[in-house]
Structure formats: structure tokens, C-alpha cells
């Protein structure tokens, strides 16, 4: 589904945000992209969705170059950016209808599709309330609904549960799980919540300072680093692997 080769983003001031990143995301994956703050996660997503042009390397989605097939790719993908604003004066339904029109959903299907995604994210009863009156959790749900309004094959979610309470996080996880399992949507997700990632992702990549330091199926990753753990009676968690890998250069860390 997604293939990158030596993807690099170097800013004019010499700062390398992403360095020779090579990834492979398969169809049906829920791919967790992890890294501490400033690791280059948002920059990577922006290169993957075609918003930023890499200084080197290439991104292919369904075998097509993102830069050369911009419009075609955009109809294929959905993106929920990290800092995602809303038109507060619109109601949830109006907002979704606007994006349905923007993405060229046929006029006869627009209303039906809006109702469908509202149902999917559990926002049908709140559809006619202005977004300005929504809670953060409701906004995120509408954001996800907007991301899938045009039935994309692949969605990018940048910190979708940031700032949500445990119930809100759980609800979003359920929605994503449903999208992946019932609707076959491939998901590329970044999150600080490692427990959440380990619960929903099947593959994980860990980046630090723009460099890919580990990438594998979640199970393989846990098996690989599980043997390093001193206390083998308790299974290793993704959180422990993440801290081990991201702090390895700074200090020796015991698992």
C-alpha cells in the first residue's frame, strides 16, 4: 500500500527532519509510527500524503508516486492531522457534507454517505449541532468521519487520541478497529500512547531524530526484545521496547 525508499527531508537551515526512511505498509495493516517529540513523525506523514515534497527519496501509494499523481492519490487517502481545526460555525453534518462535495462524492450519495459515517463514529444525534459546541472527543470523532467520508483505502491519523479521556481514547480505538476490520481501511497512525498502539496495531516502526531505528510486526518486535528482559515471568510491553530503543544511545537501560 505504502512504499518509501530513502525518504529524506532536509530543511534549508541544514536540519534533517527525516533521514533516508524506507518503509513498507501492506494493505489491511494498522501501522503504528512511534517516536519521541521532534522525531519527524508529522514531517513523515506530510511527505506520505504529498503535502511536503521530500528533498530525496520517493513515496509510492498503490505503486503510484505521490508527487506525480497528487490528485489521484488524494482521493485514495484520508488524513486527520495532529492539529486539526474545524469550521466552528458549521454543524457536524454540514462539515461532512462540505468535505463530501470537496472530494467529489456523487451528489446522489452525499447525504447517504454523511449519515453512514456519522453512524460509524456515533455522532448521529449530534449531527445538527455547531462544531463550536462540540467536546474534544466529539471533534475527534467528526474529524475521523471527515477522513473517511470519501471511502479512502488508506488513512493517516496523527495523534488521533491526543487530549482525550480514557473513554474517548477507547471509543476512537473501537472506531479504528471497525474501520480496519469491517471496511478494510489501511491505517497509518502516530501516537504517544504506546498502550493504545500495542492494542490496535499489527505493525510498528520506531523513529528517533529522523532515523528509523526499528520496524517489524508487533509480535515479532516483542519476541525480539522479550529475551532481553531480566524478569521473564512478565511479558515485555511495547512501552518498554520503545524506551529501550529510544534511550539506548543516551544511557544503558535495563529491561
Amino acid at each position: 500500500m505504502i512504499q518509501t525508499k530513502d525518504l529524506t527531508m532536509e530543511y534549508p537551515n541544514g536540519f534533517t527532519a527525516v533521514n533516508q526512511l524506507s518503509l513498507q505498509v501492506n494493505e489491511g495493516d494498522i501501522y503504528g509510527f512511534l517516536g519521541p517529540n521532534g522525531a519527524g513523525k508529522t514531517t513523515t506523514i506530510r511527505m506520505l500524503d504529498g503535502l511536503l515534497k521530500p528533498t530525496a527519496g520517493e513515496v509510492l501509494i498503490q505503486g503510484k508516486s505521490v508527487i506525480r499523481n497528487e490528485r489521484e492519490i488524494r482521493k485514495m487517502i484520508g488524513v486527520l492531522p495532529e492539529s486539526h481545526g474545524y469550521y466552528n460555525w458549521m454543524t457536524g453534518a454540514e462539515y461532512l457534507l462540505f468535505f463530501a462535495q470537496l472530494y467529489g462524492v456523487s451528489k446522489s450519495k452525499q447525504k447517504e454517505r454523511v449519515e453512514e459515517v456519522l453512524r460509524l463514529v456515533g455522532m448521529t444525534s449530534k449531527a445538527n449541532i455547531p462544531i463550536g459546541q462540540y467536546s474534544r472527543g466529539m471533534r475527534q470523532r467528526i474529524g475521523i468521519a471527515k477522513t473517511i467520508i470519501h471511502e479512502p483505502l488508506l488513512i493517516f491519523l496523527d495523534e488521533p487520541t491526543l487530549g482525550l479521556d480514557p473513554q474517548g481514547q477507547r471509543d476512537i480505538q473501537m472506531i479504528l478497529h471497525d474501520l480496519n476490520k469491517k471496511h478494510g481501511v489501511t491505517i497509518f497512525i502516530t501516537s504517544h500512547l504506546l498502550k493504545e498502539i500495542s492494542e490496535i496495531c499489527n505493525r510498528v516502526a520506531i523513529v528517533k531524530e529522523g532515523n528509523l531505528i526499528e520496524e517489524d510486526y508487533l509480535e515479532s518486535l516483542l519476541n525480539k526484545y522479550g529475551s532481553l528482559k531480566v524478569d521473564t515471568t512478565v511479558p515485555i510491553t511495547l512501552e518498554e521496547v520503545f524506551f529501550y530503543l529510544t534511550n539506548q544511545e543516551d544511557k544503558e537501560m535495563n529491561l
Binding site: 500524503d49 488524494r74 488524513v79 486539526h84 481545526g85 468535505f99 470537496l102
Partner: peptide
């Protein structure tokens, strides 16, 4: 304004040029 309200990214990501 779109930039400040953080709505610009969604617009730029739409199929519109």
C-alpha cells in the same frame, strides 16, 4: 485565518489544486 484556525491542512489535502 485558515492557517490560524488549523483548517488549511485539510483544504490542501483535498483533491482541489
Amino acid at each position: 485565518g485558515e492557517r490560524e484556525r488549523e483548517t488549511l491542512e485539510s483544504l490542501l489535502l483535498s483533491p482541489l489544486s
